[in-house]
């Protein structure tokens, strides 16, 4: 099996460029890759041993869907997580012997 070059584009209305980058990072152990931002699109290029390009693209899109959701949940819950961590640190500094 020889190295193959697979490219596909993802619209930013589907996933932000930063999310596409995050998904691409997950594939960076198996493929050489690049992610370029175009006008409203991210272009992903994977180079490596690809025996079934369509399956690989489906796998990428499935991972991307999860990462889109992760980004949304992260944005929704990050302020709360910050509040919790701040409260934890404040209480630990105020009263080192209590709570934990």
């Amino acid at each position: 099996m020889s190295n193959k070059d697979l490219s596909f584009a993802i619209q930013h209305c589907e996933a932000a460029h930063s999310v596409v980058q995050r998904t691409a990072h997950r594939f960076s152990g198996r493929y050489s890759l690049s992610v370029e931002a175009g006008d409203g699109w991210s272009v992903v290029r994977l180079i490596g041993l690809v025996d079934d390009p369509e399956r690989l693209e489906r796998e990428f899109h499935a991972a991307l869907l999860d990462d889109v959701l992760r980004a949304r949940v992260e944005a929704e819950t990050a302020p709360l997580r910050l509040l919790i961590v701040e409260a934890a640190l404040r209480s630990a500094l105020r009263d080192p012997d209590a709570g934990a």
């Binding site: 919790i84 409260a87 934890a88 209480s91 630990a92 500094l93 934990a100």
Partner: peptide
């Protein structure tokens, strides 16, 4: 309001080693 204290204690417990 979300019971911050309860969640903070959980966080603090898991990270007790930090301090």
């Amino acid at each position: 309001p979300i019971p911050l204290d309860r969640h903070a204690v959980a966080w603090r417990t898991r990270k007790a080693f930090v301090l």
